Simulated scan of single mutants.
Amino acid sequence: MRGRTSNAPRVVAAGWAAHALFDLVHDGGQHSRIPDWYPAFCAGYDLGVAAILLRPTSTATPGLSSASSS
């Protein structure tokens, strides 16, 4: 299956980014044990993970050139 790309990382990244929205609208309420800073921190973390999942990947091995020296 060479040359085919998987949609899985994009789907997982979209879900992770959607969870960031959930974190931002989540109301801890007056009796919540969640600290006030936590929803924003968690949303930022979720967006960071989503960004990492969307990074392009390279199939080349670092430090090796594609042309062999002979």
Rank of each mutant, 00 (worst) to 15 (best):
A51H: 04
D36L: 11
G28V: 03
S69H: 08
S32A: 13
D46Y: 13
R2W: 07
T5M: 13
G15F: 01
T61F: 03
P56H: 02
L47D: 02
G15L: 06
T61P: 01
L64Y: 15
H26V: 00
D27H: 13
I34L: 14
D36V: 07
C42W: 06
A17T: 01
R55E: 13
L47H: 08
P39C: 10
V49N: 05
R4I: 06
A60D: 14
F22L: 12
D36R: 13
A13P: 08
R2F: 08
C42F: 05
G28A: 11
G48D: 06
V11H: 05
L54Q: 02
V12C: 08
R33L: 09
V11M: 09
D23I: 01
S6R: 14
N7F: 09
H26Q: 09
S69V: 05
G63N: 02
W16P: 00
Y45R: 12
A8P: 00
Y38C: 00
R4G: 03
A8M: 10
S6P: 06
S68M: 10
S70L: 05
T59L: 15
V25N: 02
D46C: 10
R4P: 00
R4S: 09
P9Q: 04
V25L: 07
G44F: 12
S69E: 03
D46E: 13
P39N: 06
S65W: 06
T57M: 14
F22C: 03
A43D: 07
A17E: 15
H31L: 09
S6F: 12
A60E: 14
G29T: 02
Q30S: 08
Y45T: 02
T59G: 14
T59E: 14
A8Y: 08
G63W: 04
H19E: 04
A43C: 09
L47V: 08
A13R: 01
A51D: 06
L54Y: 03
V12E: 07
A50D: 12
R33M: 02
S65P: 01
W16L: 14
L64N: 10
P9D: 04
S65T: 10
A50Y: 10
S65N: 11
A14D: 15
V25E: 04
S66I: 04
I52D: 09
A60W: 15
I52G: 06
R2L: 05
V12H: 06
V25G: 02
S65Q: 05
L47R: 04
S70F: 05
T59K: 14
P56G: 07
D23Y: 13
P39I: 03
L21I: 00
